[in-house]
Nucleic acid binder design. Structure first.
Lengths: 361, 361
DNA sequence: TTTTAGCACTCTACAACCCCGAGTGCTAAA
DNA sequence: TTTAGCACTCGGGGTTGTAGAGTGCTAAAA
C-alpha cells in the first residue's frame, strides 16, 4: 500500500526529529514543527496508522513514536534529502587523502579516520584482492656477504620486501642464480601451487647450502598468504560512546569488541559491487552484533586486482543523509586516486550531489 | 617512617582484596581472611593508622578502605608477589611472537594484542628510531619502460619500497644513472639535509626530464620523515569497559579517545631506558587523562638504532603482579627476537621469574 | 467523510523518603 | 596492647507520590 503524501511527510518528520534528539516524537511536536496545517489529533490518527503499518514503534503506550527499521528504510529510500557538504568538510577529506604519497593501507585507514571524525561514528576500511594473488617478479639485491634484500612485485602491482640475513655468508653469484630460479619457477603461481616439492626442487637446482631458497620461499609464501583480505582498520571506535543508545556499557562493549575483533567478518562487498552506497539498517545486517546498528558502506575498485570497502557503523538512529554524503565524497576521492594514480585534486566545491544507497529488501 | 610487619600484611591484604573485588575492604573481612590472629577492632586501629599515613582512603565515613596511589606504590615496590605465568599464557605469547616472519610494526601490534588479551586491559606499542634516520642504500629496479621500483635501506636496516610510474616512459640506462646519483648524494643524510637545492642539483646532473629524480627524492624524504616515531598501535581498547571503574561512560570515553588520538603523546621511554618494567600509578602519570589510571610499560632496544615501548593501561586498581609478569615475558620475547634476529624459541616453561618495576618517586 | 476538541487514561521519570546493613571510631575493660 | 561493645554515619535499594507527556476514544464540527 502506497503511503499518502501526508503520511510521508509525517514519517519524515518523525525520523528526522528522532535522529536529532534521540527522543520519541509526539504528535504535538509534529503538528507544530512540520508545517502541515492540521491539529495534533489528526497527526495522532496518522501516527496510529503508520504504527500499525510497521513504520513506527512505541516504546510504551504513553510515549511518542520512534521509527522502526522499516521506517528508516522508507526514509532512506524515498524521503531523505541530500546533505550538502560544507567547505570545511570537503577540505578535511581532501587533506586526508591528499597529504602524502601513502601506502594503500595507510591511505585507507586515514580515509576511515577522517570519515569517523566528520560523522562521529566509527569507520572501518579494508582492501582485498579480487582473486588469488600471484607474484609477477622477484628481485634479490646483494647488500653484503651476510645480507640480501628480497623484493617481490605482486600481480596487483604492490611491492613487498624483506631483509634476509645469512650469518654464514652468501655469494653474489648465488644471489643472481636465486633470482633466475625464482623468476622462472615461482612467478604467476598461487599460494596453493607453491608446494614444498617445488621448493625442494629449487634447492636442488641451485645447490643451496645457505638456506637462502627456503628463506626466500617462505617470504613468497607469506606474501601470497597475507595478500588475502587485509585486516580492516577501524577508526574512531570510541565515537560510539558519543551516542545515547550506547550509554549502556554492555551494548557498547559488545559492538566495540565486535568491531575490533571480528570486524574481519564484516561482509565484503557483494559480488555486484555496484558503485553505489549501500545502507544496511538494523536487522538487515547479518551479524548478530549489528542487529541494533546500521552500516553505511561502499565498495570500490582499485583497478589492479584489488577491491576495497569502507564504511561507517552507528546506531540505527543514524544521520543517514550526512553519512552517505561524506562516504560518497570519500569514495569518489579514493576512486580518483586509483584511476589517475595521481593526487586527488578534487575541486572542493561544486561537486555533484552524492547519491544514496540502493534498496535492500 | 617504616611500616610494621603487621601493617604491611594488612596493606597487602587490602590491596589484593580490592584488586580482586573492586569493593572497599572492611576490617572484618581482613580479620577473617588475612590469617593474622587478631580481631577486627585491632585491624581497625591499624587501618586508621594506614589511612592517616596516606596509604589508604575512605570513599565515605562508613565504607571500607581502598588503597591510595601511595598505597599501590608501596604494594608494587615491596609487597607484591611474583605472578607465575601459566603454560597457556606463555604459549599464547609465544604463538603471537613466533608465528611468522613479520614486519616490525605488525610484530609490535601483535605483541600488544596478545598482551591485551591476556591481561584484559588495553595495550599499546610503538617503535621509534633512537636518532634521526638516514638511508644507507638505494636500489632502483627497472621493471618496464613505465615502471620502476625504488628500494631504500635505512640505517636501522629496515627496507622500504615504492612503485614509481612514468606514463611518458623512462630508459633503463637512466635508471642506472639514478641509482648512482642517489647512492652518491642521498645516502647518510638526514631529513634536514635533503634540501630542495640538493634535489635540483641532482636533476641537473642527471639531466632528468621524466620527473624521476623528484619522485625518488620525495620517496626518500617520506621515508626520513616517517621514520620518526611510528604511531602507536593500541589493542583491545574496548577492554577498559570490562572494568567497573569505567561503568561511567564519560570516563571511558575520555580514556578511550585519549588512547586512540593522543596516544602519540604517551611518554616515550625516558633516556635511562633501563631494561626494567616501569609502573606509573594514577597521578604519577603526566597526562591529565591518565591521572585516574595506571600504566605498566617497558621499553626495549631493537639494536639497530630503534627503540620501542610497549605497555598496558588500566585503572589504578590493576592487577600489577599479573600485568608485570605478562609484560615482562613479552618484552623478553621481543628482545630475543631483536638479538638473534631469529624466531624467539623461548622455552615455554622454566623461565626465570619476571622482575618488576623500579621505584618511581 | 474528515478533522478537531476534549477528556480520561497510561506510563515514565524523578524526587522524597525510609530503612537496612556495613563499617566505622571511641571507650572501657581485659 | 588487644578486645568487646556500642552509638553513629552513610550509601544503596525499595517504596511511594507526583508531574508531565502522550495516547486513544468519542462526539461534535466542518
Amino acid at each position: 500500500m502506497e503511503l499518502s503524501e501526508r503520511k510521508k511527510k509525517i514519517l519524515k518528520a518523525v525520523v528526522e526529529s528522532y535522529i536529532e534528539t534521540a527522543e520519541p516524537v509526539g504528535s504535538k511536536a509534529i503538528a507544530e514543527q512540520a508545517g502541515l496545517g492540521v491539529s495534533s489529533a489528526t497527526i495522532r490518527n496518522e501516527l496510529a496508522d503508520l504504527t500499525s503499518m510497521g513504520y513506527l514503534e512505541q516504546p510504551h503506550t504513553s510515549a511518542g513514536r520512534i521509527p522502526s527499521p522499516q521506517g528508516y528504510r522508507i526514509y532512506v529510500n524515498e524521503l531523505m534529502h541530500h546533505h550538502a557538504l560544507s567547505m570545511h568538510e570537503t577540505r578535511e577529506i581532501n587533506n586526508a587523502l591528499n597529504n602524502k604519497v601513502k601506502q594503500l593501507d595507510v591511505l585507507l585507514s586515514e580515509a576511515g579516520a577522517v570519515l569517523s571524525d566528520l560523522t562521529s561514528y566509527p569507520a572501518y576500511a579494508m582492501a582485498a584482492p579480487a582473486g588469488a594473488a600471484t607474484i609477477k617478479r622477484f628481485d634479490f639485491i646483494f647488500v653484503d656477504a651476510h645480507t640480501v634484500i628480497a623484493v617481490a612485485m605482486l600481480d596487483n602491482n604492490s611491492v613487498k620486501n624483506k631483509l634476509m640475513s645469512f650469518p654464514n655468508g652468501i655469494e653474489e653469484q648465488f644471489v643472481q642464480k636465486l633470482s633466475t630460479v625464482f623468476n622462472a619457477n615461482f612467478t604467476n603461481i598461487t599460494e596453493k601451487e607453491l608446494t614444498p616439492e617445488l621448493i625442494a626442487s629449487a634447492e636442488r637446482v641451485t645447490g643451496d647450502l645457505t638456506g637462502a631458497v627456503a628463506a626466500a620461499a617462505s617470504f613468497a609464501l607469506n606474501l601470497l598468504t597475507e595478500a588475502g583480505p587485509s585486516r580492516p582498520s577501524v577508526s574512531g571506535a570510541s565515537h560510539i560512546l558519543d551516542h545515547p543508545e550506547f550509554k549502556d556499557v554492555d551494548k557498547a562493549q559488545k559492538l566495540l569488541s565486535y568491531l575490533s575483533d571480528n570486524g574481519e567478518l564484516m561482509q565484503m562487498p557483494t559480488e555486484n559491487s555496484g558503485s553505489e552506497i549501500r545502507i544496511l539498517i538494523g536487522p538487515e545486517n547479518v551479524a548478530d552484533e549489528l542487529k541494533d546498528s546500521s552500516v553505511v558502506m561502499a565498495s570500490y575498485d582499485l583497478g589492479n586486482n584489488m577491491k576495497g570497502m569502507i564504511g561507517v557503523v552507528g546506531p540505527t538512529r543514524m544521520d543517514y543523509a550526512k553519512v552517505a554524503a561524506h562516504l560518497s565524497y570519500v569514495v569518489r576521492g579514493l576512486r580518483q586516486l586509483a584511476d589517475g594514480g595521481k593526487l586527488p585534486l578534487m575541486p572542493p566545491d561544486l561537486l555533484p550531489a552524492p547519491k544514496e544507497g540502493k534498496d535492500e529488501n
